[in-house]
Design a protein around this nucleic acid. Sequence first.
DNA 1: ATAGGCACTTACCAAAAGGTACATACTAGT
DNA 2: ACTAGTATGTACCTTTTGGTAAGTGCCTAT
Lengths: 121, 121
Amino acid sequence: MTGIAFTCGLDAALAVIGGKWKPLILFHLAHGTRRYGELRRAVGSVSDKMLIQQLKELQADGIVDRLDFKEIPPKVEYSLTAFGRTLAKALAPLCVWGTEHMSAVETLMSRRQISEEEDAA
Amino acid sequence: MTGIAFTCGLDAALAVIGGKWKPLILFHLAHGTRRYGELRRAVGSVSDKMLIQQLKELQADGIVDRLDFKEIPPKVEYSLTAFGRTLAKALAPLCVWGTEHMSAVETLMSRRQISEEEDAA
DNA sequence: ATAGGCACTTACCAAAAGGTACATACTAGT
DNA sequence: ACTAGTATGTACCTTTTGGTAAGTGCCTAT
């Protein structure tokens, strides 16, 4: 009994997009193909290790496509697969929800941080 | 600069529903009010510590309501708030996606496990 | 009297996730 | 010659998350 059996679709979906940088990666790739470096600059504060790791997983999960131009200097393009685009579509309303309530959620999260700091004392 | 600033709505939304048991909790509460014990049996393999912790966070985030009947023996009912219901609605398409691709995702996740085990060797 | 259910709480520990820093190989620009 | 940029790999460490096991107080049923 390994534990990989989802009781609701939400769990299955979150198993795919769970990971600190995956939502942002999906978000950027939903707007079009991006080279590795472009993606990293777009995401912002991510490290190479993390970006590559998450991209590899998304690739293994059939969500993103990696196109290696085999050039020197290296050129690699990332894009969403057809499957990835179905996911992006399903994600859209949640994205809208998050955008609409972003400031509320931000204050909630900073409150969470404060109460964690209090617990430390 | 604490780092609580979302660049896309997805991150904000996932900050709220991230947590191993939260999707399932939302899923069950979306079907109606549940007593604590009911919820725990519905979720299945969750421990009291975890369930309570996640419920507390969802409550602090304004997603669920806790109604304490102040009876002895204790009786407490959990339900979604109006805000929580807007989240549940935004989550619905993702839930459908996950349900539709559940078996595919399950095989992906077990593959992930295998490759992790291989890396250990 | 003892067992079990109610809704929690706490202390402690293991596993997973994430982060930093450095290395690679090759090229183009100054 | 040196710097920067291309896309990755890897070793090591910290933080975060989740899990186990036990205990609380009060009640009901056996």
